[in-house]
Structure formats: C-alpha cells, structure tokens
C-alpha cells in the first residue's frame, strides 16, 4: 500500500533507446573521448546494470539519459521521445547522497514536490516515501545526524517521492560499508519490484551487478564501448551462493580482462 501511494500506474517503467551515442569532454582544449558508438535498448520495467572499470564513462552515459548533458553524436530516446532537459520522471541518484544539509530528512524528501509546486496537495507522498525506505521517526533529523546508509536511503526516498518512471542509479551503494551495502542491495530489488519502474544501475562491482540486475551490459575502458551483454535469467530473491551467479561472475570478469583473478 505504501508502493501504491508512490506509483499510480503499475508497470509504469519507461523504455530507453540508446543509438550510436558518442561523447567527449574538453579537457584544457584537448578533446577527451568518453563514449564511443554505444547502442542498446532497455525494455520498460527492466533492471539493467552498466558494469565497467572506474572512469570508463558509464556515469557520463547515465547523465546523458538524465538530460544533465547532451551527447555529441547519436541519440537517446526515452519512450520514443528524445531526451531534453532534466525531468522529475527520470531521477538520478548519485554515489554521494548529497542531501541538503540545511533541510531535515522530511524537507529533503519533499524537495521534488516543493520544486514542482505540488507539495500542498501531494504531501502524503512524502510520508509514504519515508516509510518505504524504512526511516519513520527520522523526519526531523538533519543530514549530519545520519549514518551513510541512512543518508543514502533518504536520497532514494527523495527520488521515489516523484514517482519516477526511470530510476538512474550512479553507484548509489559505492561508499557504504560492506554490511550496509548487502542490506541495501536487497532493498533496492524490493523497491524496484514494488514500484515497477525501469532501473539502470551503474556500478564497478561485478557481484552487485549480477546479484541485482536482469541484464548486465559490460563496458571496456575509456572511451567506453560495449564488450558484452549478459542476461541474468534468475528469479528473485536471489542467493549470493548460487553457482549460476558464480558462473556469470566469471564470465563478466573475463570480459573485463580479469579472469586470472578468478
């Protein structure tokens, strides 16, 4: 019922079509290519992981899908429409929770509704989102009073309160301690299942990608190009000790040129 308050339409996830996208940065006048002719499609409601070495350009790809930057070449379409400016239906969750330190947990979660001017009428969505990430009772806390895991949960609630159709996760668990991280991986899966949105997770953690996603797209080093597209055809809830996961993990590491460590 909590999910119902956050998601009116079930199966509301969006499709993404990335077509021949290339991108580069200007680094002191020299062009630095970060994405090289990347193409893939994601069907509505899927959970897809983008896996690759640090700094390969996968986060840049996520920013392009969010609309924070625009690709130099190629096109990105969400539900058939070209991506323009940032929009609350496509929410990016960063590696750092980047909560606004001057706002309480509640006011942080309410940020999107306030910015869109619908906080008065839709205020109950704030409570629903806080409950969804299990932070009831922390409404009035300030960010500096929260642990890393709690702060990242607030960041997730701040995203979910907008009823996004597309959740873009840029290594959201990257800075958490390993136990919190395992707990939050399971929470991410359950949030995704409850809301039915499309989730794209950028990570450099092979196990995390395979444990969470239905499909893992593997990128090579910068400029990023796709080196493999692995379906993970296992039902949820998954078990970390599953031999099929171990096999997929070996495959993924092989594509990243790290099979020797297996």
């Amino acid at each position: 019922m909590v999910a119902a308050a956050l998601q009116t339409v079930p199966e509301a996830g969006r499709s993404i079509a990335v077509d021949a996208v290339s991108h580069r940065f200007d680094l002191e006048g020299k062009p630095l290519p970060v994405l090289d002719d990347v193409s893939f499609d994601i069907e509505p409601g899927a959970f897809v992981a983008l896996l690759g070495p640090s700094g390969c350009g996968k986060s840049t790809l996520l920013r392009l899908v969010a609309g924070l930057d625009h690709p130099v070449a190629g096109s990105i379409k969400v539900d058939g429409a070209k991506v323009g400016d940032p929009d609350p239906s496509r929410i990016l969750v960063f590696q750092d929770p980047t909560l606004f330190p001057w706002r309480t947990v509640r006011a942080n979660v309410a940020l999107g509704l306030e910015a869109q001017g619908i906080l008065k009428t839709e205020g109950r969505r704030v409570d629903a989102a806080i409950r969804m990430v299990g932070l009831e009772g922390f409404d009035k806390a300030y960010p500096h009073q929260l642990s890393g895991g709690m702060a990242q949960r607030v960041a997730l609630a701040r995203a979910l309160v907008n009823r996004p159709n597309l959740l873009l996760l840029d290594e959201p668990l990257g800075k958490l301690d390993s136990l919190t991280r395992l707990a939050m991986q399971a929470e991410l899966v359950s949030l995704w299942q409850q809301t039915g949105l499309t989730a794209v997770l950028v990570t450099h953690d092979v196990e995390e990608a395979i444990f969470l996603a239905q499909r893992v797209i593997v990128f090579g080093p910068r400029p990023a190009r796709i080196v493999a597209d692995l379906p993970v055809d296992l039902p949820y809830p998954r078990h970390r000790g599953d031999p099929q996961l171990a096999d997929l993990r070996r495959q993924a590491l092989g594509h990243l040129g790290l099979e020797a460590s297996w």
């Binding site: 969010a66 609309g67 924070l68 400016d85 940032p86 929009d87 609350p88 496509r90 929410i91 990016l92 960063f94 750092d96 980047t98 606004f100 940020l111 999107g112 910015a115 869109q116 701040r158 907008n162």
Partner: peptide, 10 residues
C-alpha cells in the same frame, strides 16, 4: 551537485 539534484527534481 545541489543544483543538478534540484534540476532533476524539476
């Protein structure tokens, strides 16, 4: 990042 977050939130 504060601006980018606020922008993506509309």
């Amino acid at each position: 990042d504060y601006y980018e977050i606020a922008r993506t939130l509309g």
